[in-house]
Design a protein around this nucleic acid. Structure first.
Lengths: 153, 153
DNA sequence: TGGCTATTTAGAATTACTCCAAATATTGAC
DNA sequence: GTCAATATTTGGAGTAATTCTAAATAGCCA
């Protein structure tokens, strides 16, 4: 009990999550920490379903509803971004730097792509307030591209 | 019967739709023509649901399934673009020139925004094939912006 | 005009959440 | 440390937006 308490305290004080939660009046929970760990360990673009599957490996009793709740909270805390590249499941991205996404229409994988620094991609119409951009590049990734060109030779 | 035939023929030969269909081995149908008309008459960004409602005004027996089918076909023919600005219903855009979309998070309306001519927004990673870009700008439109600032004074 | 086959149609099925209310856990005060 | 207040988790029901299916209908070429 004492050991458990001190571990919890340690978690609360370390890492970006606990501080983000605290400033928003949200509580630290092992589920939130674990879902966040899952996202930063493998920095790809999983759907909620995929996050659920990965989370269950170390925390088998976590529920799908909790995964959705945690992901929402992490987005609210500015630790994750949602990305919607096609209709279908929403994806989550732990890279919070400015960047855009390449979506492979062949295998469905997603890659982060850097934006040319300081570029302002569009003209802002008068009176409009811009919150954020979302740039998606659709195409075929190098692996699929090579595979399609020539299976042999 | 002869009259009907000649009207059909006339439709088949005029407009961009019939030719696009023909080159793809697809058939001309009044439903496809009508759904296309609905999209070009009011050049906004309706959902399938909205297209269904508008289509029914002149063609009350058209079904939702047919609206989905027609929209898919029109996209395939290069006469419409699908746009996915948030999770939820897909939208359809009859503007086939290069442009991007401004999405108002307040009222949900969508505006076409011109891209600076000749701009290449992102660097293409080696071996990747680019099919098309999708640039969405999220923010608040001028009407909502003005309304929020000061209801009075 | 006929026949082959694409298209339309209503309704069932599916996907990806979103909502709900009861059980449980966290946190600040003592 | 213990308690009370309330945030969070959980399983399951509910919902929105398609997507699928199979029978009826309609284009189109010979």
């Amino acid at each position: 009990m004492v050991r458990r308490m001190s571990l919890t305290k340690k978690n609360r004080l370390s890492g970006p999550l606990s501080q983000r939660l605290q400033t928003r009046g949200l509580r630290f929970t092992p589920q939130r920490q674990h879902v966040y760990n899952v996202l930063v360990q493998k920095r790809d673009h999983p759907t909620a379903e995929e996050v659920f599957i990965r989370s269950k490996r170390e925390m088998p009793d976590i529920s799908m509803a909790t995964v959705y709740n945690c992901l929402d909270t992490l987005v609210e805390c500015g630790l994750l971004r949602q990305v919607q590249l096609e209709r279908g499941a929403r994806r989550y991205c732990p890279n919070m730097r400015e960047h855009c996404h390449f979506y492979c229409g062949e295998c469905g994988s997603v890659f982060d792509v850097a934006l040319p620094a300081g570029s302002r991609p569009v003209h802002r119409p008068k009176g409009f307030r811009i919150d954020h951009y979302e740039i998606a590049v659709h195409g075929i990734c190098s692996d699929c591209s090579a595979r399609k060109k020539r299976p042999k030779q």
